[in-house]
Design a protein around this nucleic acid. Structure first.
Lengths: 143, 143
DNA sequence: ACTTGACTTCAAGCTTACTTGAACTTGTAG
DNA sequence: CTACAAGTTCAAGTAAGCTTGAAGTCAAGT
């Protein structure tokens, strides 16, 4: 178990393409040292960081947002589990919202479309609390 | 209640920008007649079609996929509720999968990151059935 | 020494889903 | 008739998240 990794090794272990890793580095999401040759050497801790990035992307954050989050980690020491936990805690709400939206969409799928009311007219299934009003016209009820 | 609508009216009623509507028409997702002036006239039924497009996008389909779906509707008659239902039935699985993924991610959020095992190493929470193996390295377990 | 594979930078290209701008025509209210 | 809002086309731009290609360097095996 080596303590530093080449970009190819990181790529293999993380499943993220080397070109993407360079891109992340350019964006400041991950960091590397350089050997005399100019080749990147990543510390093993970058793997956790990358895992976090991939995770956050699946949740729906942009790389910019992820960068902001990662910037909250302590720079002076290796992030502890509780450091990571702080970052992720706020995402729970986001995930829950997205799950709720999908469940609304799911109901629309079985309810609205099936019942023939999929339209911008009033539908009590898609629009249970008359949300449509505040968001303006459109199918905002599920959105 | 007019039977045909201008692009501006459709835009207002659907909440979709006129430029987007032109784009959808170019892509073959919606259709319009033209007046002598060259101005588009949309039938009211386009609203349902647009609702479907917006809906499908939120579920995660691309415009290409949506186009394929819409192409399955009967061209010779106004689509019936059951026509719409046929299209949407297959999406249920897709929505369910995405919901399941988010729920897995949610568990990772409270479990893996909190417990400090967010990494590419084995984690029984993120990787309950050793899925990692078949998908190669990487945080595929939540993905 | 030589070959091959892995690495480097930099610029340009790709995909999706639109938006924006320019230049122009139509429709409507006063 | 005159504004002015709303419509038209077409080309180009935007944003995110990378990928690809060119041209060259470095490292490892034989």
């Amino acid at each position: 178990m080596q303590s530093v990794l080449t970009i190819g090794e990181v790529s293999k272990r993380s499943g993220v393409a080397a070109s993407a890793l360079r891109f992340y580095e350019e964006r400041g999401l991950i960091a590397s040292e350089r050997e005399g040759s100019g080749h990147r050497r990543f510390s093993r801790s970058v793997l956790r960081r990358i895992a976090f990035i991939v995770f956050a992307q699946r949740i729906g954050l942009t790389l910019d947002e992820i960068g902001d989050e990662l910037a909250k980690l302590p720079a002076d020491r290796t992030p502890s589990p509780s450091d990571w936990e702080k970052l992720s805690a706020q995402w729970l709400q986001r995930v829950d919202e997205r799950i709720a939206e999908l469940q609304r969409l799911r109901e629309g799928l079985t309810g609205c479309i099936g019942c023939g009311c999929l339209s911008f007219e009033v539908c009590w299934i898609a629009n249970p609390e008359d949300r449509k009003g505040r968001a303006g016209p459109g199918p905002r009820s599920w959105v």
